[in-house]
């Protein structure tokens, strides 16, 4: 079953259009949503969560089409938005009490365990938290009500590398249960590469691709050589290339590599940058 299924989602703003986006995210998988600033990642996530209204298209969560009553579905979703904002005078115990009123399956013990694990100060007021602490509190809330689906919008930005690594481990543990699914947008492509089963690339409101990470890494490779050597590769098979005084680097489909040319493996970050920028001088 697909935990998230998005079909032909379109949302128009004055200066931006999220254009006909469709993808499926199977249960038990982690999907990374990559895109430059303003590509439409947050818009897409907000539409999936029912925070903003789509112009057309269909969102299905856990196999059920969602047209209204998003709030009922949110009992089963943990959302970490780009900005965590509790009332300034709230402490950890107040957040705990408030969430206890909101979520049917709120797990106080689990919440307190995450608070200890993330070393969030219990006696500090929310207004005195650093950006990282706020993010960690948001993550603790999202993980403490038995959600089957986690939706994370830039959840790791603002976290130091150690906490980020801990957080990725937590996500990894979370998806060991095959009913648990994660949709994760981030600028830190290396985080996505470590964790994700699927990668979706958004560019200027369009979904450029949505594919299994291993398939992507198998399909594409990096070629280095002179411009003449690269002319042997059909243009349609080139994702993007970078010219420098020392030669040309290009990401191409592995099957299109000419005999005798050495091909290196690519990273998701390279693939994303070359795909979005095309030809880099």
């Amino acid at each position: 079953m697909n935990a998230v299924s998005v079909k032909n989602i379109t949302k128009k703003y004055k200066d931006f259009t999220l254009d006909n986006v469709s993808f499926d995210l199977p249960s038990g998988c982690i999907m990374g949503l990559v895109g430059e600033n303003g590509a439409g990642k947050s818009t897409l996530i907000k539409i999936i969560c029912g925070i903003i209204m789509k112009k057309q298209g269909e969102v299905s969560l856990f196999g059920e089409s969602v047209t209204e009553n998003f709030s009922d579905f949110r009992q089963n979703i943990g959302i970490v938005s780009d900005e965590i904002a509790f009332p300034y005078n709230f402490k950890v115990k107040n957040v705990n009490r408030m969430m206890n009123c909101i979520y049917d399956n709120w797990n106080e013990k689990s919440f307190n365990d995450y608070i200890d694990k993330f070393e969030i100060p219990r006696n500090k007021k929310f207004k005195d938290y650093s950006l990282g602490m706020k993010k960690k509190l948001g993550i603790a809330v999202a993980l403490s009500h038995g959600a089957s689906l986690l939706i994370l919008d830039e959840a790791t930005s603002g976290l130091d590398p150690v906490v980020r690594d801990d957080f990725l481990d937590i996500l990894y543990d979370f998806t060991r249960d095959e009913n648990h699914t994660v949709l994760f947008s981030s600028h830190i492509v290396s985080d996505l590469e470590k964790l994700c089963d699927y990668i979706a690339v958004l560019h200027k409101g369009k979904l450029l691709m949505c594919e299994e990470k291993d398939v992507l890494l198998d399909t594409y490779c990096m070629l280095r050589g002179s411009e003449q050597e690269l002319e042997a590769v059909p243009k349609s098979e080139i994702v993007g290339k970078r010219k420098s005084p020392y030669g040309v680097q290009a990401i191409v489909k592995r099957e299109a590599v000419p005999n005798g040319m050495a091909a290196d493996s690519v990273t998701i970050e390279d693939l994303f940058v070359y795909m979005v920028k095309g030809e880099i001088q």
Partner: peptide, 8 residues
């Protein structure tokens, strides 16, 4: 804004 992500 943040409250809109909760089931309210």
């Amino acid at each position: 804004k943040y409250m809109t992500s909760f089931p309210i």
